[in-house]
Amino acid sequence: MPTIDLETASLRDLNQALHSLGRDEGGELWEILNPRGSHAVAVGVDAPLEISVHGSVGYYCGGMNQQASITVHGSAGPGVAENMMSGSVVIKGNASQYAGATSRGGLLVIEGNASSRCGISMKGADIVVKGDIGHMSAFMAQSGNLVVLGDAGDALGDSLYEARLFVRGSVKSLGADCIEKEMRPEHIELLGNLLSKAGVTDVKPEEFTRYGSARKLYNFDVDNADAY
């Protein structure tokens, strides 16, 4: 069980050690101590590891993650799990802005609140936020699922493509071209699976409202020419 203390080791030492592992080397639990808000903790990992970070991290923790299961016992700065490809990132505290930005795969769980632009331009990942999310979340989100157990801020899903948004609480306002949609049986099933993957057992999928794209911005409408 490797332990890296960022009080004494440099961030470069940590990430280099993680990057030098082969893609199939795994199973180990890596403990990271004293991050004290450091940037880029455990970025670009591509091995099936368990990584446990004890404390709060700064920008881009777990960015570009593949395969690894990263848990942060603290809060995360901007851009946590940005461009994640697979694996999982779990934040026990809160996450700052653009959590899971452009993430392509894997699961991001935020046990507290996420700030603005959560899931911006997400492209296939699953993001589950147990608290609230801030304004402009899921802006131009392309695919994947954003699940919010609390409330959403202003302009949710502005210019949304095909990502699915599930919100249990209130939505302050919807962004352009984002609309409420019917919860069909396949959505209940999908959401049930996502909740169980995120370890949520006390909330039912039926409690959520689904939002998605009205698909009116997909093609240029000549009636809007004056707007440009």
Binding site: R36, G37, S38, S56, G58, Y59, S75, G77, P78, S96, Q97, S116, G134, H135, M136
Partner: peptide
């Protein structure tokens, strides 16, 4: 829009502001 970062911390001894949590960690 709030794209410029900000973190605050409050205890019964102080209120602190930092552009990042790093500044507050000590």
């Amino acid at each position: 829009i709030a794209c410029k970062p900000a973190v605050m911390a409050e205890t019964d001894r102080y209120v602190a502001f930092g552009s990042e949590y790093r500044a507050l960690a000590g």
